[in-house]
Design a binder for these strands. Structure first.
Lengths: 226, 226
DNA sequence: ATGTACGAAATCGTATACGAAGCTTAGGAG
DNA sequence: CTCCTAAGCTTCGTATACGATTTCGTACAT
């Protein structure tokens, strides 16, 4: 009969602060470049600055915020170069995670992923980039979430979190990519269903993401020369 | 004419603390399982506990220390399972880093790597696991350090750091692996010299590390059944 | 009008202090 | 002799306070 206070969800205040700030970044309340003033956040949460500082340090180590000495923290930006690096890293990590996860997927998982992908397909007309991106994440989550190596899984999550600060994500910039993406998802599912070897699955998953990146790069270089 | 004080190398005390603790972990002064008592370290450095806490948070996010609420931090352990996960992750990340780095390697780099590898070969008799491991890291560093993607490079470094806390590393447990390792290094160098495609290099680099992991697993399961 | 210098405000960095939680050990009951 | 209980110690968690650094605005000189 402990745990009497329902308004104390997380343990320490520094953890609460960490969770809150992270949520606000991922969710978009704090957009990239936003300055995270310690005293301000401390006031919001009704705590002192010390736990906030610790939370910020953790977020810094995860790459969600950048920190400059004697100046302060800002939400990490979407610098195109940074986007490229993150996507490339994620292509490698997520490809591996998907391959490691695939032998552990049951029929129910496949069915669920396929269901999500069909939702995405239905979403193609009246295209809503935000919704599409959310479904996209859900689809891939089903595929890699069974990855037995927690380190790799953690890295995948971190990668997705960093991309999440872009909100509507790539598909706003490259809507044409969405159709291909849905088709590649189905191909990937067939590959997993047929119990293809890990190498093939890894390569397919990686290429799927690289293709999105390439589409973005082509788009942006075209924009440059216009 | 600022920077007058020579004894103040790093900027903030929390950064100094971070660097020091990390160094001590990697270098082995703090062995795995060692309790990191805040007040103790603060006393050592002549600072208060606040900067220490921040440093520990960062190390926690990097996986070098584990932290338990209201209990404290300890140097992250070498739990065999953890070792497995770390090696597997590193095989993927380092393989990718090496492949991305290989086109950027000059003749001088190759020569340097080959020199290190020859030192390793010479080191095979009068086998010294610690020295061998250090050379091994140097060899691989030459190969992946040119990786143009800083995120991937950072992940490789983190992986190596975690393994570093094992000090003498795998080769103490599996000395027989050392000979094969040197040969595989030479094969990898030949592959890079011949400008093989990135896929082949990545696969070779990944397998090289997986093989070490497999040797360790075989050894440890043999030890279990004895 | 522009550039520079000075000063005030904002913000960060760290020390100190005190309360809370966990661990250890001594004492007593069964 | 063993197990349970309680007090004390250790260590962590956070608030508050103050010094240090940066930034921004204003006034002055050129």
């Amino acid at each position: 009969m402990a745990e009497a206070v329902p308004a104390a969800p997380a343990g320490s205040k520094s953890e609460q602060a960490y969770a809150l700030i992270k949520a606000r970044i991922v969710e978009g309340t704090y957009s990239p470049g936003h300055r995270l003033v310690l005293a301000r956040i401390a006031g919001d949460l009704g705590v002192s600055v010390v736990p906030i500082r610790e939370a910020i340090r953790r977020l810094e180590a995860e790459g969600l915020v950048t920190f400059e000495r004697n100046v302060g923290a800002t939400v990490a930006g979407i610098d195109p170069t940074e986007y490229l690096y993150t996507m490339q890293t994620l292509s490698i990590i997520e490809g591996a995670a998907t391959a490691l996860s695939s032998p552990l997927l049951g029929a129910a998982d496949i069915a669920r992923a396929r269901g999500v992908n069909e939702e995405m397909r239905a979403c193609l007309k009246d295209f809503d980039p935000v919704r599409f991106t959310r479904l996209n994440q859900e689809f891939h989550s089903v595929l890699f979430e069974h990855c037995p190596n927690p380190h790799i899984l953690d890295l995948v999550h971190r990668g997705w979190n960093r991309l999440a600060s872009l909100r509507s994500s790539t598909f706003r910039f490259v809507p044409g990519r969405a159709t291909e993406s849905v088709d590649e998802h189905e191909a990937l599912l067939k590959l997993i269903e047929s119990q293809a070897d890990a190498d093939a699955i890894e390569k397919a998953a990686r290429l799927h993401r690289s293709a999105t990146l390439d589409a973005y790069l082509a788009q942006s270089s075209a924009a440059d020369s216009s």
